[in-house]
């Protein structure tokens, strides 16, 4: 509890604040964060073995050292990512959290939130409710997570699961789908981490729950 104690602020003591993230959300969030970083960094190294575009990723931000090492990391962390992701999706759907927190998303609200943010009037007082932009980003990243896992499986097993590979347009197309799903997640990560640092109490909430 020393971590939470250290970041207590003027917003009252821990017990006074509403519970924003139940324990299962916090646990699956941080397990996912670690697994995702390992998957992305090792994935970049794998990409470098046969780049899809005119660039490759600098060695310093890849994991595994060479192709075989990266593949070992990738195919180890995939279990953590997939199992943790399934638990998260199951609890999020069954417990109603996704329905309560993420929908509906209204286009007008999205523009409204963007306008408020650009004029520095966006409120962060109530962390229990997501604004329309947050909702949109979380829905998009959850979908990108599903696509990145399914397209990854389709690249891994294009013979045994050829129907899945066909769904993504064949083996070569599935590699591009896998890449762009990764790019979507990385784009989300950049914004997500930046905003968490700008609004530190949101980071606190993901650690202590309140």
């Amino acid at each position: 509890m020393s971590v939470s104690a250290a970041i207590e602020t003027d917003a009252g003591t821990r017990r006074d604040r509403p519970l924003i993230h139940p324990r299962w959300v916090r646990i699956t969030h941080w397990i996912n964060a670690v697994a995702m970083v390992v998957m992305i960094m090792s994935g970049w190294q794998i990409y470098n073995a046969s780049p899809l575009f005119e660039f490759d990723f600098p060695r310093s931000i890849t994991l595994g050292g060479w192709l075989a090492g990266a593949l070992l990391w990738h195919f180890a962390a995939m279990w953590v990512l997939a199992i943790n992701g399934l638990i998260y999706l199951a609890l999020g759907i069954a417990g109603g959290r996704f329905r309560r927190k993420l929908i509906p998303i209204r286009i007008g609200d999205v523009f409204g939130t963007v306008r408020e943010a650009l004029t520095f009037r966006l409120s962060h007082d109530d962390l229990t409710r997501y604004n329309a932009v947050q909702k949109l980003m979380y829905v998009v990243v959850i979908l990108a997570g599903v696509v990145v896992v399914l397209s990854g499986i389709s690249i891994w097993k294009p013979v045994q699961l050829s129907w899945l590979t066909a769904l993504f347009g064949g083996y070569d197309a599935a590699r591009y789908v896998h890449f762009f799903a990764m790019a979507t997640i990385v784009g989300f990560l950049v914004v997500h981490v930046l905003l968490a640092l700008l609004v530190p109490k949101s980071l606190r909430a993901m650690i202590t729950g309140r």
């Binding site: 941080w30 670690v34 390992v38 060695r59 994991l63 050292g65 060479w66």
Partner: peptide
Amino acid sequence: AKLMPDPARRQFLRGAASLGALTLL
């Protein structure tokens, strides 16, 4: 890395060092 056959591939776990942040977590 000695388990790896040649210098180009001896980078097996080199990238792992930069994952030090994970240790903190």
